[in-house]
Nucleic acid binder design. Structure first.
Lengths: 220, 220
DNA sequence: ATCTTTCCCACCTAGGTGTGAACC
DNA sequence: ATGGTTCACACCTAGGTGGGAAAG
């Protein structure tokens, strides 16, 4: 069991390309992962992402900077999530261990809301996926459906727009350090602490030493 | 003076096209103003829009539905603001009267954030300009600069994207009932009341009869 | 029993209102 | 004085956090 867990861990740390693990090249197109250090610190603990019925944002935010596109061609940019391995996972004794065969994968792809847009637009500033939401129910909306307790790796697709980008090739990039296990509740306390310490929306769970949160609750 | 004021008023009420005042046609392209009734109720009092240094949203929100575009062609959609008449205005004795010659106009055009996009996208649902901000300082950003105390009419432009929409014509539409006077503070109490009663962000100024807002303020 | 999911909640971030006093 | 502008402010809308109890 420990063996399986460390296999998961090492998979999250091995760079997929020859160069810097935060950078990838596909043809002339270069894709670099933003906030690589933050992703690495989550990956070291094996990252988890909450999925809910109504959809939950990712944290850290998936964000990349892109070079080498045709500035005047049109592209749409997508993020999908590929299952890593054919197994599901359990958290027992503070360790992730195999939990049996994986459920059949669900096809779910998120189109970046700026799509479609010129290559120049996509290269002008980092492409942020701050609004993408992960869910475990098929809301048939603009949300990504994942199987809980499965390990995923986000995958970026840059696709020339049909009829508006003749001769341009599609590009694809993914970064092992962005892998995570989909969960309905955090399993690893270290991940919870990392989320709280870096996500501004979780500020109320910070600084437990300085303030007693229950002081305000007078009744009950 | 009353004569000038009523000229302003009637200008705001006369439909610019032959058909329904909330609808316009330019070539094959048809543009219809959403929430026409709301705009009319503001126009009856002579509408005002706040401008601030940091930028202020419009209320009502400028929103149109569009038909007749080429679904597979690319367009960008713009909103600009044309000065109506060559004069500025003053609010004296609860009436808008001429305040002399207009200041030189400022070129300022807002590109809808969905731009560029397919004709099919623009026709799929009403095009909302909910994020556009009006300012009286040149922030050199994505904000519209207006001269205070001048009368404006918003003007919609649908522009085929160069190199991605061969043979498509640009279209233009404007609606007199969306005219307004730019102000740094509301002049007409009737406008203030209309804003408060329809804009959810001004809810705290509603229901003065039911609640005393100052009750909570114990000090000073 | 155990593990997983769901729901409500207090507590935040982020930012859009007009007010009223101060400023120019 | 007068009229226009600016600013801090209380009070909202809108929605993103993990916690913890309850349910499955």
């Amino acid at each position: 069991q420990t063996e399986v867990s460390s296999a998961l861990h090492s998979a999250a740390m091995v760079p997929q390309s020859d160069s810097f693990p935060g950078s990838q090249q596909d043809g002339d197109v270069t894709v670099q992962l933003e906030n690589n250090d933050l992703w690495q610190s989550f990956a070291r603990c094996i990252n988890e992402m909450i999925v809910t019925r109504s959809g939950r944002r990712m944290f850290p935010i998936y964000s990349v900077s892109v070079k080498g596109l045709n500035p005047s061609a049109m592209y749409s940019v997508y993020l999908d999530f590929e299952v890593v391995g054919q197994q599901r996972w359990k958290f027992v004794n503070r360790k992730w261990v195999s939990g049996g065969r994986a459920d059949p994968p669900i096809q779910s792809r998120y189109k970046h809301p700026d799509s479609p847009h010129y290559g120049s637009h996509w290269m002008a500033k980092p492409i942020q996926f701050g609004k993408v939401k992960l869910t475990n129910k098929n809301n048939s909306e603009q949300q990504v459906v994942l199987n809980s307790l499965h390990n995923y790796e986000p995958c970026l697709h840059i696709v020339p727009e049909p009829g508006h980008s003749q001769g341009c090739r599609a590009a694809k990039a993914s970064f092992p350090q962005t892998q995570f296990i989909a969960v309905t509740a955090y399993q690893n306390e270290a991940i919870t602490e990392l989320k709280i310490s870096h996500n501004p929306f979780a500020k109320s769970f910070k600084d437990n030493a300085g303030r007693c949160k229950d002081e305000a609750v007078q009744r009950s």
